[in-house]
């Protein structure tokens, strides 16, 4: 399929990028409308433009702040709720069905309700981004605690641990894997909720820029923002993982 000189994984991966760009240029040329499908050079020019005018960094920072604030509150709330519900079983039986139902509604559905209740300010945005994190992390925590190996609990009880000390030294570390997994997942989901709140009712953030470009028919500005928010999401998740590692939490993933 490929010329024999082209071999090796890296070569093929680089080749894929080249082919993808060439394909894009071809489509752009075929449509004959640079404004509708801007070729790569136009996109790069727009990117530099938006960096120079500080439009991109400013809105990216707004978006990042929203995700981080909401995630911090959502994650702490989710863990507290999850541990409380693990300790008091009936509480979880009580909450599980309603929470599961709310989780099955896509977050964008709640944007109009949040705006109607709390206005278009930052609070309603934080709320829409955070609520899903609370639910996902609570489910992850409860599942993590539930999956702690019985053998391990018994081994600790042999050492005389019980009650709070058993919970603190055995249950929490054993459940950490599930909790960290749910944190990771909900951080990714937060970016979906972020775009939901920013495209429906916002005057700042990358989601707003995307909607604004649609009204002004600026495809290049829109595509740059779409890629930017994707990159922002990836980088945030990577930094989060790095922080966990630096904090020495990697051992709990074993």
């Amino acid at each position: 399929m490929f010329p024999p000189s082209v071999s090796g994984r890296v070569t093929r991966q680089i080749l894929s990028v080249v082919v993808l760009i060439a394909l894009w240029q071809l489509v752009s040329w075929l449509t004959g409308d640079r404004a509708l499908v801007p070729p790569v050079q136009d996109l790069l020019a727009k990117l530099l433009d938006m960096m120079a005018s500080l439009e991109l960094p400013t809105h990216a920072l707004d978006s990042l702040r929203r995700v981080l604030v909401a995630f911090a509150f959502g994650a702490s709330g989710g863990m507290i709720l999850g541990f409380a519900a693990s300790a008091v079983r009936p509480l979880w039986t009580f909450l599980e069905v309603p929470l599961d139902f709310i989780r099955s509604v896509p977050p964008i559905g709640f944007v109009p309700l949040a705006i109607a209740w709390f206005g278009i300010g930052e609070f309603s945005k934080y709320l829409v981004i955070a609520y899903l994190t609370v639910i996902v992390v609570a489910f992850g925590t409860v599942a993590g605690v539930r999956q702690v190996d019985q053998t391990r609990i018994r081994a600790a009880r042999c050492m005389g641990l019980s009650g709070w000390r058993l919970f603190r030294h055995i249950v929490i570390p054993s459940a950490s894997r599930g909790i960290i997994g749910s944190l990771h997942l909900s951080l990714g989901l937060s970016f979906i909720s972020l775009v939901a709140v920013e495209i429906i009712g916002s005057t700042s953030g990358l989601g707003f820029v995307i909607m604004d470009s649609r009204l002004l028919l600026q495809t290049d500005r829109m595509i740059v923002s779409i890629v930017a928010i994707g990159v922002l999401g990836i980088v945030t998740v990577l930094v989060f993982d790095l922080l966990l590692r630096l904090m020495g939490l990697a051992r709990f993933m074993r």
Partner: peptide
């Protein structure tokens, strides 16, 4: 009275 479990992987503290 201390137990040595058959499933060492489960009984040891992985972290």
């Amino acid at each position: 009275r201390f137990v040595i479990f058959q499933e060492a992987g489960a009984a040891l503290f992985s972290w």
